[in-house]
Amino acid sequence: MLQLDNVTFLYAPDRGVKEASLRVETGEVIGVVGGNGVGKSTLLGLIAAALVPQSGTITLGVTGMGGRTKRLLSDDGIGYRRYVGYLTEAAPAYGELSVKRYLAFRARLHGVGIFRLRRRLTEALKRCGLTPIQKEPIAKLSLGLQRRVALAEALIAAPVLLVLDDPFAGIDAVQREAMAGIIRDVAVRSYVFISGHDPLLLKACCTRFVLMEHAEITADALDADAAMARLQPPRTPKEAEA
């Protein structure tokens, strides 16, 4: 279970996230949709523990090997961050490194041991279709492939919580479908958050939509069409007639 209780993080009175509450169960893929500057990236940053809430808590329940569930708070040490895979909006990477070296570096930082590293790398490369280009420097790859590298990086530590900030930005329909397939596979045993502007693009992988307006969650448990309808500006009588 992942739970947000009155989480607030404000840059300005109406910018950021204001008293967001949400509960997510395993296997759910949450699409966070809304216009520009409504606080989607901030909400995802908070869930990924890249930001610390000014008030409220984010709790992640993780079931261990013995079946015991422990509750981790996002702002309490690095314990919570061990279970997070995060793809940021800018999807940064060290461009001069090859795909494989970069992923190995990030995996080591996530605490993947030497003995598991090779298996995890092979899995991530294969899953994201990066095996043929694993020795290419990241800077020489296209934008779509760079985002796939960032996705592979988010997946490399087998996260319990996967946070993807606008993963489909700037990539074509074929790659989008491939990425949606990967996300669906991962979602079976994880909590997944995806942000975007267009619910119809996220429809392929999201099970539930959350709408954000003016730094607040204004609607929860929407389907793609309902979210789309809420996002579109109200029609004038003339447009409705047409």
């Binding site: 990924a48 890249a50 940021t88 940064p92 930082l109 996530h110």
Partner: peptide, 14 residues
């Protein structure tokens, strides 16, 4: 400059 800070914040490294 490269926007790496946010990724660093969410990495489990002190």
């Amino acid at each position: 400059e490269t926007g790496m800070m946010r990724l660093m914040f969410s990495t489990p490294v002190r």
